[in-house]
Lab assay of single mutants.
Amino acid sequence: MDETGKELVLALYDYQEKSPREVTMKKGDILTLLNSTNKDWWKVEVKITVNGKTYERQGFVPAAYVKKL
């Protein structure tokens, strides 16, 4: 869990989004888990830094590609 009590997951593999509802992740990324009720796709939040500014983006990743921490 992070400092706000949200559950975290670890990306076990790289994943490139294939639709606007998904998010890209790299092996080793730590993501915030938002919803894991679907056994195949989990909703996560990723933080992306571009030119020194951090953005948060929500989307789905394959559940088999992440592990709860």
Rank of each mutant, 00 (worst) to 15 (best):
F60R: 03
P20Q: 10
Y13C: 10
E56A: 09
L10R: 09
T37W: 08
R21D: 11
T49D: 11
E56V: 15
T24P: 07
T49S: 10
G52I: 03
K27P: 03
G5W: 11
Y55D: 07
N51G: 13
E45W: 06
K67D: 07
D2E: 15
D40G: 08
K26H: 09
P62A: 02
M1Q: 15
Y15L: 02
G59I: 03
L12S: 03
R57K: 13
E22K: 04
V61A: 03
L31V: 07
R57N: 06
M25F: 09
P20H: 11
E17A: 14
E22I: 03
S19K: 09
T54D: 12
D2Q: 14
P20L: 08
G59N: 00
T54C: 10
E56N: 14
L31D: 00
R21I: 13
P20A: 12
T24K: 03
K39Y: 10
I30H: 04
K53R: 10
K39R: 13
V61K: 00
T32S: 07
D2C: 11
G59V: 03
N51F: 10
Y15D: 00
K27D: 02
I48D: 07
V50L: 12
N35F: 05
T49K: 13
V66Q: 00
E56Q: 14
G52T: 05
A64I: 13
S19E: 07
K47M: 10
G52E: 06
W41Y: 08
L69Y: 08
E3N: 15
S36M: 10
I48V: 14
V61I: 06
D14L: 02
K26L: 07
K39G: 10
L12E: 04
G59Y: 02
L12G: 01
L34R: 04
L8S: 08
L10C: 07
K53A: 14
T32V: 15
E56Y: 15
R21S: 15
T37F: 07
E17R: 15
D40V: 12
V61L: 02
N35Y: 05
E3A: 15
Y55A: 07
V9G: 12
V61Y: 00
K26N: 08
Q58N: 08
G28D: 05
L69D: 03
D14N: 08
K43Q: 11
M25N: 01
V61T: 01
L12I: 11
T49H: 14
K27N: 04
G59H: 01
L69M: 10
Y15H: 04
T4R: 04
V50D: 09
T54K: 08
T37K: 15
K53L: 15
E22A: 05
S19M: 06
A63K: 05
N38L: 11
T54H: 11
K68V: 12
I30F: 05
K43L: 15
N51D: 11
W41V: 03
F60D: 04
N35Q: 10
T24A: 07
V50P: 03
S19A: 07
K18S: 12
L10Q: 13
A64V: 09
G5A: 11
N51S: 15
T4K: 05
T54I: 10
K68Q: 10
L10T: 07
G52C: 08
D2M: 11
T32G: 07
N38R: 11
K67A: 10
V46W: 06
N35K: 07
P62K: 02
M1T: 15
P20K: 11
V50Y: 15
K68C: 07
E56P: 08
K68H: 10
L10G: 02
R57D: 04
L33A: 02
G52H: 07
T54L: 12
L34E: 02
Q16G: 06
S36W: 08
F60N: 04
P20I: 08
K39V: 11
P20C: 07
V50Q: 12
V61H: 00
E3R: 03
A63C: 06
P20T: 08
A11V: 07
Y65V: 05
K18G: 08
T24G: 07
L10F: 09
V23Y: 03
W42I: 04
K6H: 11
G28Q: 02
D2G: 15
T37G: 10
T4Y: 11
Q16C: 10
L8C: 08
L31T: 01
T49Q: 11
N35R: 06
P62V: 01
L69T: 06
E3T: 15
S19Q: 07
R21K: 14
M1F: 12
K26M: 10
P62D: 02
V44I: 05
M25K: 00
K68L: 15
M25A: 02
Y13H: 12
G59S: 01
K68Y: 08
L34Y: 04
S36T: 09
L69Q: 06
F60W: 14
R57V: 07
T32C: 08
Y13A: 09
D40I: 14
E45P: 00
G59D: 00
Y15S: 01
Q16V: 14
K26P: 01
L34D: 01
Y13L: 09
A63H: 03
V44Y: 00
K18C: 08
L8A: 06
E56T: 12
E7H: 12
L69F: 11
L10V: 14
T4Q: 13
G59E: 01
D40P: 02
V61E: 00
G28F: 04
V50R: 09
E56L: 15
K53H: 14
E17S: 14
S19C: 07
G5N: 14
N38H: 14
G28W: 05
K43D: 03
L8R: 11
D29P: 00
F60L: 14
E3K: 06
L69I: 13
V61N: 00
Q16S: 13
E17N: 06
A64W: 08
E17C: 10
S19V: 04
T32R: 14
E3L: 10
G59F: 04
P62W: 02
Y15V: 01
M1K: 13
L33E: 00
R21H: 15
N51C: 09
V9R: 01
S19D: 12
K39E: 11
L69V: 14
L31R: 00
N35W: 06
K47S: 15
A63M: 04
E45I: 12
K43M: 15
L31H: 03
Y65M: 11
K18Y: 04
W42F: 06
P20M: 10
R57Q: 07
N38C: 08
L31A: 08
V66P: 00
K18Q: 15
D14G: 06
M1G: 15
M1V: 15
K6A: 12
E22L: 04
D14W: 03
D2F: 04
K26W: 09
K68P: 09
V9Y: 07
S19F: 07
E7I: 14
W42D: 00
V66K: 00
P20Y: 08
L34W: 04
R57F: 04
K39H: 15
E3P: 13
L34F: 03
E3Q: 15
K27I: 05
K27W: 03
K68D: 04
A64D: 10
M25S: 00
V23L: 11
T32F: 10
Y65H: 06
A63T: 05
D29R: 02
G52S: 06
K18D: 06
V44L: 03
Q58V: 10
V61P: 00
E45V: 13
S36I: 05
E7V: 09
A63G: 03
D14V: 02
K67C: 11
T4A: 11
K6I: 11
L34Q: 03
V44W: 00
S36E: 13
V44D: 00
